Computed example of a mutant assay.
Amino acid sequence: MISPALTDALARWLDHVRAIDGAAENTVKAYQTDVLAFLAFLQTHHGDSQGINAIKCLTVSDMRSWMAHERGRGVAARSLARMLSAVKSFIRYMAERHDFDPSAVLMTRAPKFQKKLPRPLAVDAAKAMIETAEFQAREHWAALRDVAAITLMYGCGLRISEALGLKGRDAPLADVIRITGKGGKERIVPVVPAARDAVEAYRGACPHDLADDQPLFRGIRGGALHAAQLQKTVAQTRMQLGLPATATPHALRHSFATHLLNAGGDLRSIQELLGHASLNTTQMYTAVDTARLMEVYKSAHPRASGRK
């Protein structure tokens, strides 16, 4: 059983993460789940009620036992690394407020895993995705809606949640729009003419009243368009074009960044357009570009390909 004092401390930490770090609500919920799972393990591991003193007395052995337990349950290395990050953050917060040294525990290493690089679409495949999406919906206005949303994701680098989060007041789209992304962080995004035209075509055909305070993108019955429906449209389009399973809505955002980089865009500007908090996140696109370059090298270079 987790003591009331520790339960209260966890709640205060989550409020801190929400308010000070600006974490999105989904992130906060994930942190809560991860730390609660860790505390539940400690209770089983030590066989008694867990209070604040249990956090003060944590050892490296405790951390390793917990990680071994999670791996034994089938938790992947990537997920465990995320869980460890949340637990460390909580321990660091507790140490600052209860005056104990967490250094040894915080030195616990995350399991190694291979980072998955984003799989952007080729330029012609992205164009084909937009053109073919129009044929997935039965209603003409819904087809225009899907094209508009997909064009926004590829043309402006929006997340699916950001595109579907637009309100009636946001249209007609200006040359730049203000987007609220993860953690409530705002950024200014230029709007390409193709995206603006696609949204206007949809608005002109939509049978529902697109009031200022209501969602811009609507479902067939007039409610907000759900991400699952747009994902289904992209999946149908992908299969029709014979594209790989990696051709998802988020891949359109990756494609936006990669194609900008290939056209000479600098990382700092792309970071701002994508709303990445850290430049390190954006730098993965240089790895994508390098990986593609190496593939070309291996297939074309006489020595690399084994030709003489």
Rank of each mutant, 00 (worst) to 15 (best):
H208A: 12
Q271F: 11
R303P: 02
I52P: 03
A68D: 15
G72E: 12
W13N: 03
M294W: 10
R71V: 05
G181D: 09
A122K: 14
A211T: 12
A122V: 06
V17M: 14
I91M: 13
V17G: 02
Q229M: 12
F90C: 08
Y154V: 02
H98P: 00
A133C: 13
A128D: 08
S299Q: 14
D197F: 04
R292P: 00
P193F: 05
Y297D: 07
I188A: 10
F135T: 15
H276E: 12
D197Q: 05
A30R: 05
R82F: 08
Y285A: 11
Q136D: 06
T246G: 06
R18A: 15
G242C: 11
T233S: 07
S255Y: 11
R138D: 08
S89H: 14
G47V: 14
R292K: 07
L274C: 02
R221Q: 13
G51W: 12
H259Q: 12
P207I: 09
T108K: 13
G157E: 02
I188N: 10
G74W: 08
G242K: 11
G181K: 11
D209G: 07
K298W: 05
L164S: 01
L210Y: 06
T59M: 11
S61C: 12
D209W: 12
S85P: 00
R221Y: 12
A86R: 02
H301D: 09
V87H: 01
P111H: 14
G204I: 01
I179L: 11
P190G: 09
R169K: 07
R307P: 01
K185N: 13
V35K: 13
D170P: 03
I188Y: 10
M94S: 06
A304H: 13
L117Y: 08
H69P: 03
P193H: 13
G264Y: 07
A149S: 05
P120M: 04
F38E: 04
H45Q: 15
V189D: 01
M94Y: 12
T282R: 10
F217T: 00
I55P: 10
T258M: 07
A300Y: 06
K232A: 08
